[in-house]
C-alpha cells in the first residue's frame, strides 16, 4: 500500500507566540478547521455505533448472527430490501444488515486502532534506534526496512493468513509487522538530522546517556510527524483489514465485518443493492472521515502546506 503521506517538517521552529506550546498551537489550528471537525464528529458517531452495537441489536430485536430464514428472505431465498423490520434490509442468510454493520464497526475500529498502535510503536522505536545509534544497528535496521518495504505486502499477507488460518490476532499482527517500516523510515530520517543539532550535544555535555537523549530530547521532536502519519495510517489499516476479509482471509464467519459482508454480497449486487451499498457506505464513510481528519491534522501541524 503506498500511503499518500508526506513528511512534515517539524524542524521548522514556530514563531514566538506567548504562552503556547507548538502542540497546543496545532490543536488550536485544528479546531478552526471545519472539515476536520465535521470528520471528527463522524468518527465519533462511528465509534458510538460500535460501542452501542448491542443497543442496535436490542432495539431491532435482531442479534447479529441470527438467520431469519422466513422473515428475512424472500420465498426465492433472496435477501429482503429495507423495510419496517429490517431497516437496512437483510443479507443472503436473512440476517439484519444494520445490526451487522454496527457490529462490523467494532472489528474495523479495533483492528484500525490496535494495528496502527503496534505499527507506530515498533516504527518509532526502531526508527529512533537506527537514526540515533547509527553504526551497525543502523545498517541492519536500514536493510530490514528495505526488505519489508520491498515485499509485495498484500501477497505475503495473504500467504501468511492462509498458512496460519484467519483470526483477529493474525490480521492485526500481519498488518502491524508490515506497516512499521514506513514509520521507521520517516522517524529515522528525522532523527538523522536531529542528531546533529546542538541541543543533542548540549544534553551530552550535561552528561545525559544515549537512552535519555533518545527519549527525552529527540523523541518529542519527532512526535508531530508521527501523529500526522498515525491519523493517516488508521484508514489505510482499516482498508487493508477489509481487503483481507474481502479476499476471504478476514475473520472466520459468522463474525460480522464490513469487508466480509461486501465479499458475501458480490453475487447479489444485481438483485440486492442494499446488501452491498450499506456496508460499502459504512466502510467508505469511515475511511473518508479519517482521511479528511488526517488531512486537517497535517495542515495543523505543518501550516506551511496551507500558505501560499
Amino acid at each position: 500500500m503506498t500511503a499518500a503521506i508526506e513528511m512534515v517538517d517539524v524542524l521548522e521552529e514556530p514563531k514566538a507566540i506567548e504562552g503556547r506550546s507548538p502542540f497546543s498551537l496545532a490543536l488550536r489550528r485544528l479546531r478552526k478547521d471545519k472539515v476536520a471537525m465535521i470528520s471528527l464528529a463522524v468518527i465519533v458517531l462511528i465509534v458510538l455505533m460500535a460501542i452501542l452495537a448491542p443497543v442496535f441489536a436490542a432495539v431491532t430485536g435482531h442479534p447479529p448472527n441470527e438467520q431469519y430464514r422466513d422473515l428475512g428472505l424472500t420465498p426465492d431465498g433472496l435477501p429482503r430490501g429495507p423495510n419496517g423490520t429490517f431497516w437496512l434490509g437483510t443479507d443472503d442468510l436473512g440476517r439484519d444488515v444494520l445490526v451487522r454493520i454496527a457490529y462490523g464497526a467494532r472489528i474495523s475500529l479495533l483492528v484500525g486502532v490496535i494495528a496502527t498502535a503496534i505499527t507506530v510503536v515498533i516504527g518509532v522505536v526502531l526508527g529512533l534506534a537506527a537514526g540515533f545509534l547509527g553504526g551497525i544497528t543502523d545498517t541492519i535496521l536500514a536493510r530490514l526496512i528495505d526488505v519489508v518495504l520491498s515485499v509485495p505486502f498484500l501477497l505475503v499477507a495473504i500467504a501468511l493468513v492462509s498458512v496460519t488460518g484467519p483470526s483477529l490476532t493474525v490480521t492485526v499482527l500481519v498488518i502491524g509487522c508490515f506497516s512499521w517500516a514506513s514509520v521507521a523510515r520517516i522517524v529515522r530520517g528525522q532523527v538523522l538530522s536531529l542528531r546533529e543539532r546542538e541541543f543533542v550535544e548540549a544534553a551530552r555535555s550535561l552528561g545525559a546517556g544515549d537512552r535519555r537523549i533518545m527519549f527525552v530530547d529527540v523523541l518529542p521532536n519527532v512526535i508531530a510527524p508521527v501523529i500526522v502519519y498515525t491519523t493517516l495510517l488508521i484508514p489505510v489499516v482499516i482498508v487493508t483489514q477489509a481487503t483481507l476479509s474481502f479476499l476471504g482471509l478476514g475473520l472466520p464467519p459468522p463474525t460480522p465485518d464490513w469487508g466480509g459482508m461486501i465479499s458475501e454480497s458480490q453475487n447479489y449486487y444485481t438483485t440486492a443493492w442494499w446488501f452491498i451499498l450499506f456496508p460499502g457506505l459504512a466502510l467508505l464513510v469511515t475511511t473518508l472521515a479519517f482521511n479528511l481528519f488526517g488531512d486537517g491534522v497535517r495542515d495543523a501541524f505543518d501550516p506551511r502546506a496551507d500558505r501560499t
Binding site: 482498508v239 461486501i262 449486487y269 452491498i276 466502510l283 482521511n291
Partner: peptide
C-alpha cells in the same frame, strides 16, 4: 482526490462493474 483515495479498491471495482457493466 481524497474521496477516491479513501475508496477500498475492491469496493471501487465492484461499483464500476455495477454501473458501467451491469
Amino acid at each position: 482526490a481524497l474521496f477516491f483515495y479513501s475508496f477500498p479498491s475492491f469496493l471501487l471495482g465492484l461499483l464500476l462493474l455495477y454501473f458501467l457493466y451491469f
